[in-house]
Simulated assay, not measured.
Amino acid sequence: MIQVGIIGGAGYTAGELIRLLLNHPKAVINFVYSTSSAGRLLSAIHQDLLGETSIQFSDQINPNIDVLFLCLGHGNSKAFLEAHEFSSCTKIIDLSHDFRLKTSANFQAKQFIYGLPELNKKEIIKANYIANPGCFATAIQLALLPLAAHHLIQNPVHINAVTGATGAGTKLSATTHYTWRDNNFSYYKAFGHQHLGEIKESLVSLQKEFDSALNFIPNRGNFSRGIFATLYLELDESLETIQSLYQSFYKDAPFTIISENEVHLKQAVNTNKCILHLTKYNNKLLITSAIDNLLKGASGQAIQNMNLMFGIEEKTGLKLKASYF
């Protein structure tokens, strides 16, 4: 069994990671580290785990585990690794932004591989250190990678995407308070979201000359989880040609699904899937991408990466059904 350690166990992504690992047939949780909650049951914080486990938060770290998941806020993973040492055999999967860009991927002689399996599966299989992609970045990249692979992004891409309240994390703020969020809708970080850097690097890795604008408007929705993104750009190729390119690109990607019908968010929530739909309006290609921001956008993708790193079948522990009703 893979011995797993989790750092930063109180947030939404950690809660989903724990839920997945408790039901994973090839992994066991060795510790969940938290100095503030040490000695408390995991279910005291993650109340959906009541009756599922008697594991307690710990203020002790086992440096000899097989894999370490870092579920810390952006900027804190580097500080944690500077302060703590682990076995040279311990693989690390970081769920923050700290190591996603090429300029920050090499840290303390550790080379972090960008962990988008649909793009870097061969590298992930051989990797010891993974930078798990961002949630918006996952939804947007999976919508665009097949076009970049065929050098077809020659015009600006317009992206409108809405995320649920869990995308903002557990810390309360003015825009996550129930009375503000309920029956409300707003945009934020227009044209300057932090995930744009990793998206552009991935597109350039497939289409070297890529320099088209990504006009990205992120939105806050008044629902709990999920990302629903619509993207459009001018493209002359026929819909049949484009659909064929996507089917071919994702033929070995078990979690990226091309739907012939229009998609909606409930098809993806509570799964590790990215569901894509393609259609054309005259010379405009419209792409819809739907994911669960806490699963394919975070913890589910982290488990997917763990499976690949340890030579386990990719879908192990991730055969989840959407909460449709």
Rank of each mutant, 00 (worst) to 15 (best):
269 V>P: 00
168 A>V: 03
149 A>T: 14
292 D>I: 03
3 Q>G: 04
9 G>H: 00
183 N>F: 11
145 L>W: 05
44 A>I: 00
231 L>I: 07
302 A>R: 02
284 K>M: 08
311 G>N: 13
243 Q>V: 01
50 L>S: 08
28 V>G: 10
318 L>H: 08
243 Q>L: 03
6 I>H: 02
287 I>L: 09
177 H>C: 13
124 I>P: 01
127 A>F: 03
99 F>T: 03
106 N>K: 14
5 G>C: 05
306 M>N: 09
43 S>E: 08
85 E>G: 06
238 S>A: 15
110 K>R: 15
51 G>E: 10
96 S>Q: 04
31 F>I: 09
3 Q>P: 01
159 I>C: 02
10 A>Y: 13
308 L>K: 07
170 T>S: 15
232 Y>K: 14
268 A>G: 11
37 S>A: 12
277 H>E: 07
202 S>F: 06
178 Y>L: 10
19 R>H: 09
60 Q>R: 03
106 N>F: 12
319 K>W: 00
42 L>S: 06
151 H>W: 01
77 S>L: 11
15 G>R: 04
83 A>Q: 10
298 A>P: 07
245 L>I: 05
139 A>R: 07
94 D>V: 05
277 H>C: 10
251 K>H: 10
166 T>I: 04
17 L>R: 01
325 F>I: 09
282 N>I: 08
129 Y>N: 12
11 G>S: 05
34 S>T: 15
104 S>T: 13
213 A>F: 09
24 H>G: 09
78 K>R: 05
49 L>E: 08
205 S>H: 12
239 L>G: 11
187 Y>M: 04
244 S>H: 14
283 N>L: 08
46 H>R: 08
121 K>D: 07
72 L>M: 11
172 L>V: 03
80 F>N: 05
120 N>S: 12
5 G>H: 04
144 L>A: 03
205 S>V: 10
90 T>S: 14
250 Y>W: 05
305 N>E: 06
23 N>D: 15
58 S>P: 02
73 G>T: 13
317 G>C: 02
